[in-house]
């Protein structure tokens, strides 16, 4: 080990991989496989157990349907569920988009004007800490359009993580770099554009990942409160409706789709974050050991 660390030994390193390096590579490979195989195994096991419990105990399907029934509902009701998923997904993505614009925009505004920040920040916090379920019914009294109302609900839930993480990022500029910009006579816009926004990017992306999940929650809650009518039927309403009809299998099927959407949003935002940061940010380096 100590021998390979000598500078002179470096030349030979490419040719002969030392034992530690080989061990590390093997461990990495094993971990890579386990990352996908193990959760899959857990899922298969859980589904099998679920099936056995239903069969062994003779549980009636309107109390707990077995996995095969849920699957049948998922495929049989696919058109219905897919249309609902599209609606919920559209509201979620639109809410996420305005949460990003609103959250990041407010953060920049607050950063540029201390007075605006002092005036408005407490209200942003109040909006955040008040449970959306309790605001939503009010919103639907005053807002005519169901879509706009749902967007407002989802926005209220999702904008705050973007706002707070972007604010933190804008204020986390290296103070020496800030001094350097001052010495070179940078304008406030140059400082914002060339220094603060790039510094804030990793923070913003962290907030974005949280906001993605929250906007789905916001959309689902808004749907439950808004009910159907006018804009078609989303997944949340499908779950509620299937519950009224004791169609438990469809409830599970719709739930699975909602969960899959959440996972998809998180994965997509993680990928986006990785693409934007991989070239320069410390979080994107693969270190040894």
């Amino acid at each position: 080990m100590s021998v390979t660390d000598l500078p002179g030994a470096k030349a030979g390193k490419a040719a002969t991989v030392d034992a530690e390096e080989a061990r590390r590579a093997r461990r990495r490979r094993v971990e890579q496989t386990a990352r996908y195989v193990l959760p899959l195994l857990v899922m298969v096991l859980a589904i099998w157990l679920w099936d056995r419990i239903v069969v062994w105990n003779d549980i009636p399907h309107f109390i707990l349907p077995g996995p095969s029934r849920v699957w049948a509902s998922l495929t049989g009701d696919w058109n219905l569920l897919w249309d609902s998923a599209l609606l919920t997904g559209r509201i979620t993505l639109m809410a996420l988009a305005i949460a990003v614009v609103g959250g990041a925009g407010l953060a920049i505004l607050f950063n540029q004007s201390r007075m605006v920040e002092l005036s408005l920040y407490p209200y942003a916090v109040i909006l955040q800490v008040t449970p959306v379920v309790s605001i939503a019914p009010l919103i639907f009294i005053y807002v005519e359009s169901k879509t706009v109302g749902m967007l407002m609900c989802a926005w209220i839930v999702a904008f705050f993580p973007v706002l707070s993480s972007t604010t933190l990022g804008l204020n986390s500029v290296d103070h020496n770099l800030r001094d350097l910009f001052r010495i070179y006579g940078a304008t406030r816009w140059q400082r914002l554009w060339m220094l603060q926004l790039p510094s804030a990017l990793p923070y913003f992306l962290g907030g974005l990942k949280i906001a993605g999940g929250l906007s789905l929650i916001g959309a689902v809650v808004a749907e439950l409160v808004a009910g159907t009518g006018g804009v078609g039927t989303g997944l949340a309403f499908r779950i509620q409706e299937a519950g009224y009809r004791l169609n438990i299998a469809r409830m599970f099927a719709a739930l699975a789709i909602v969960a899959a959407m959440g996972v998809f949003i998180f994965a997509a935002l993680s990928l986006l974050s990785h693409m934007l940061l991989r070239r320069w940010h410390e979080s994107a380096i693969k270190r040894e050991h």
């Binding site: 770099l177 790039p198 990017l201 940010h281 410390e282």
Partner: peptide
């Protein structure tokens, strides 16, 4: 400065 103080994104 004492630290290199480079912009890591550039």
């Amino acid at each position: 400065f004492q630290e290199p103080t480079l912009m890591p994104w550039a």
